[in-house]
């Protein structure tokens, strides 16, 4: 046996009979414990700092009960024409904003994928996405209502803008994670850039695009209910009016319809996603 073989033998002997544990994520024991204890202390202090006015909560229970009771007897009839008009406006906003948003998202998503687009295009598209994602829908809606006035136009533009930020980002990430070799094979045939996208890249991101689009339609509809609260049109405006008049039974009817439509969309997107894999 040579010297190195003997050393290897000893390295093995030293390990035999000793238990094995997965190495800890944080190697230094003091740091590990300090982080753990610090997190617990912070949690305790944070919970202690929340002020709860128990008397106010007790009073509010009645109002909550009235609200829940209203759900037992939703009133679809007395404001039927308002609800109908609001729903129609919401659906129009959702469909229009989804179509426009998805249409614009595809080129921007391609532009924001580093493995497809040149650097200047990439930076421009990523910048646009960052701006779109930095502002919550309600804030954008308040700005657009100030510019375009009350009504569904502001809501439509808000939702389109938000769709672009959401869809382009996720699409770009999917494109960046695609199988490079499949695309390379199409490029090797002498295809032009557009043909390369159409044959080598598009088939790879299409299922994800369809799934995300279905999800976004769902989100847009829910958001359209919120946007009405700031005057951007849709069912939210009707809902807001109902709350202002303490017509909880009408509000309940609207909420039940929103829930039903969202669940319907969810079911539909499940079917679609299963079929496009």
């Amino acid at each position: 046996m040579t010297v190195s073989e003997a050393e290897a033998q000893m390295a093995l002997e030293a390990r035999l009979g000793r238990p094995w544990r997965k190495p800890p994520l944080i190697r230094r024991a003091w740091l590990r414990w300090a982080l753990g204890i610090g997190a617990l202390v912070y949690l305790a202090l944070a919970v202690a700092s929340v002020e709860v006015n128990w008397a106010r909560v007790y009073e509010g229970l009645d109002r909550g009960a009235a609200f829940i009771a209203a759900f037992m007897s939703p009133d679809f009839a007395s404001r039927a024409s308002d609800i109908y008009a609001g729903m129609l406006e919401s659906i129009v906003m959702t469909v229009a904003a989804s179509v426009v948003g998805i249409g614009v998202s595809i080129p921007i998503g391609l532009g924001a994928a580093r493995n497809v687009a040149p650097l200047p295009v990439y930076l421009a598209c990523r910048g646009l996405i960052a701006v779109s994602r930095a502002f919550q829908e309600v804030i954008v809606a308040i700005l657009l209502v100030a510019i375009f006035g009350f009504g569904p136009l502001a809501g439509f533009l808000t939702l389109s803008f938000a769709t672009i930020g959401f869809l382009s980002k996720l699409l770009a990430e999917d494109i960046e994670a695609m199988d490079r070799v499949q695309a390379e094979a199409v490029r090797a045939t002498g295809a032009r850039w557009l043909q390369w996208i159409n044959y080598g890249v598009q088939p790879q991101f299409m299922p994800r695009l369809i799934g995300l689009s279905m999800y976004r339609i769902d989100i847009n509809f829910r958001e359209s209910a919120v946007l009405g609260l700031v005057g951007a049109g849709g069912i939210g405006a009707t809902l807001n009016t109902a709350f202002d008049r303490y017509e909880f039974d009408t509000a309940a009817a609207i909420l039940i319809m929103i829930i039903a439509i969202v669940m319907g969309l969810e079911y539909l997107s499940g079917i679609v996603r299963a079929r496009v894999q």
Partner: peptide
């Protein structure tokens, strides 16, 4: 060109 792992576009 013929590739290792075929490099067919799988969803076409």
């Amino acid at each position: 060109m013929i590739f290792q792992e075929y490099a067919l576009v799988e969803r076409l």
